[in-house]
């Protein structure tokens, strides 16, 4: 494949896939160790009503109101889960199940009842996005990466996702020590004066930022997969947090790249005419990686 074909058609989706995968895998490591792995699942479900409400209020499909709506919905969900858990003394898993299914159902109903036929907003898109469609038509080859005119027409999802990745990475880097201590020994963290409550909430908010930014480009299924599978596979490779995070970034990148390639070209190699969903294939590859780690990882038990 030449640069003139690869750069406009595949480079941008691939980069977005990598950004999504890494941005979700990084906080996923901590969520996994804190037994909050399913927070990612819950967040990615409640993003839908947030986006729909934002659309109904503003009437346009624009990124800023949608990001705000989705972030608002994520906070409402976290608050509701906490309230149900405390008021009803319900176990967190069940409280989460009540909240995210209800909010998702509300989102679907709002979406179906309101007239969104003019805009690109439907449930299938929310679930598995459309990574393949994020092509960079103005690029002509590798030289376009240095051409400001072509760069101006880069799909907006790429800088947004890269920005989310930077935010997530910065948060993890800045709060590395407190996060590590409070994840492994919350009681100790509290005795040395760390505020574990706000820190835990901040972690969930950062995860929500990653999920919301990713949602628009790739749909929710890949978000859930990337929150859990790369960190879980990494957990089976090592006993050190630093190494685990490094492994998870590696796994996430491998899943994103090979998933995209397999979805785009795999069916052609097998003789079929069309490609399959890249988001679904990335999730599948991450599952295969996890399965390999579960069967052969040095620290699997």
């Amino acid at each position: 494949m030449t640069g003139s074909e690869f750069v406009p058609l595949s480079l941008v989706p691939m980069l977005i896939g990598i950004c999504v995968a890494v941005a979700c895998a990084l906080p996923g490591n901590f969520l996994l160790l804190r037994r909050q792995a399913l927070i990612g699942d819950a967040i990615s479900h409640v993003v839908l009503p947030g986006i729909v409400v934002a659309f109904l209020l503003t009437g346009v499909v624009a990124s800023v109101p949608m990001l705000l709506g989705a972030a608002g919905a994520a906070l409402v969900a976290v608050a509701a889960i906490e309230a149900i858990r405390r008021l009803g003394k319900i176990e967190p898993g069940a409280a989460m199940g009540v909240v995210f299914t209800t909010m998702f159902a509300g989102g679907v109903l709002l979406l179906e009842m309101s007239d969104t036929s003019a805009v690109h907003l439907d449930v299938e898109h929310a679930l598995y996005g459309n990574l393949e469609s994020l092509i960079w038509l103005d690029a002509t080859g590798w030289s376009s990466l240095l051409d400001p005119q072509a760069l101006a027409y880069l799909p907006v999802e790429l800088p947004r996702m890269a920005g989310a990745l930077v935010v997530v990475a910065l948060f993890i880097a800045v709060f590395w020590r407190p996060l590590k201590i409070s994840t492994f020994d919350e009681g100790f963290a509290r005795t040395i004066g760390l505020r574990t409550g706000p820190l835990g909430l901040a972690l969930v908010v950062v995860a929500a930022i990653a999920a919301v930014a990713a949602f628009d480009a790739v749909g929710s299924i890949i978000v859930i997969a990337m929150f859990i599978c790369p960190p879980a596979a990494a957990r089976l490779m090592t006993n050190r947090l630093e190494a685990q995070v490094a492994w998870s970034v590696l796994f996430a990148t491998v899943a994103a790249v090979s998933g995209y390639v397999l979805a785009g070209y795999g069916p052609l190699w097998l003789g079929a005419a069309d490609s399959v969903s890249a988001a679904g294939m990335i999730a599948t590859v991450s599952g295969v990686l996890l399965a390999c780690a579960a069967l052969m990882g040095p620290a699997r038990r």
Binding site: L38, I221, I222, A225, C229, A232, A279, T284, G287
Partner: peptide, 11 residues
Amino acid sequence: IGAVLSVFFGF
């Protein structure tokens, strides 16, 4: 749960 859910659904 999360791993199985997302991978099977993705597939």
